[in-house]
Design a protein around this nucleic acid. Structure first.
Lengths: 207, 207
DNA sequence: CATCATAGCGAACGAAGGTTCAAAGTTCGA
DNA sequence: TCGAACTTTGAACCTTCGTTCGCTATGATG
């Protein structure tokens, strides 16, 4: 594997290419599965020879790690900001879920890979960081939810919310009827108990 | 691969062994992933030599198919019965979701495999039947939900419900605080709008 | 232009693992 | 107890990749 170029003029191209590889890998892994996707296939998709991939990544598993990092890190960062903000709890939660759903649908492939390769990520030292990110994010959602929804069983609501949002990656289509925002608001309404917490309004409102 | 024994006395043992292989396979696939689990490993777990597995199954993929079948068929059958029954719509839905959650937690490994290998199942002719079962089941849930919850956006509620129930396989532990029944009832409460008969429609502009 | 970091090539290597098969072992049924 | 049906063995086969590496091409830099 080659290092990132020292020469400034080449860095940009390198970064772009590298990013493109991650993108194509996520796409292929999501569609065919990690193991069913060969490095040769991936290289061909990029218009490269097999060996060239190793200029950008140490190996196949490094690619998977890059996909997971690119999925979790921006999400965690943005979520932290939202919760640090001063705002009514229910508004914070709505903002958080909107952000989250938007992230999931914008990175559907990353998300699907992340879910499909759960068993890989859940064991092995090299995945500790990814696991930590996921845990930290879930903790944030739990906090946001508890504050906005003090009564009832917040634990089940949290698990349900995790389930529905993550599942969104499997059915969302850009040309579908619902916008990410509508979806997010719908989810919030469900977990807060419609009528009660939905006071903020379902965004777009009536159809 | 050998055929099912003709001699009655041997059938029972054959069926039991075959079933045990499916069980162990589901367990291993769920924990390590389909591709990361070798036939040799599987054979060793069963106390058999590698080749013996091929006595019971045509190959590794046949095993995966068996896992999916055993997951979907009883579920679909039971769900059909529930909805054929005469009962108030909301009661039917509750029964259906209880049954479903119970099935998911009782077959967690099958379920995790089913989810992880989604990309395999979603393409290829040999998986048509499994896909059809899943679709049929989702259709049943959709019907049950629509009847119990006629106003509002039933579509998002359905997708949310699918997400939360399926996700249950990933966090449920037998020694946990919640029984499968409590979980199911919690989910139903969420999608029907807890407490009040408040329409839980997302984007329905219900407030 | 000369130099050298960078980018890419693509055949070949090596390990892994699904599958086969002929032979040996075991159990049922008469 | 005998033969046939059934079960199991385990080493060898064969294919499929992930990865390597020596070489070439490119183009920025001075």
């Amino acid at each position: 594997m080659a290092a990132r170029p020292t020469r400034p003029a080449l860095r940009e191209r390198y970064d772009r290419r590298r990013q493109e590889v991650v993108y194509q890998a996520a796409r292929a892994f999501a569609r065919q599965g990690y193991d069913q996707t060969t490095m040769q296939e991936l290289a061909a998709t990029m218009g490269l020879a097999t060996g060239a991939l190793y200029h950008y990544f140490g190996g196949k598993e490094t690619l998977l790690a890059a996909i997971c990092d690119q999925l979790m890190e921006p999400l965690l960062e943005q979520a932290t900001e939202v919760l640090a903000d001063e705002a009514p709890a229910d508004r914070q939660l709505r903002t958080l879920v909107r952000l989250w759903v938007a992230h999931v649908v914008a990175h559907r492939d990353h998300m699907l890979v992340f879910q499909q390769e759960r068993h890989v990520i859940e064991s092995g030292d090299q995945w500790r960081k990814v696991r930590a990110s996921r845990k930290a994010f879930e903790r944030l959602v739990a906090d946001g939810l508890e504050r906005a929804h003090p009564r009832g069983d917040a634990r089940l609501a949290l698990l349900a919310l995790l389930g529905m949002v993550n599942h969104t990656a499997q059915w969302y289509r850009p040309r579908g009827e619902l916008t990410p925002e509508q979806i997010a608001d719908g989810y919030v309404a469900l977990v807060l108990g419609a009528g009660a917490g939905a006071g903020a309004g379902a965004g777009a409102g009536a159809e």
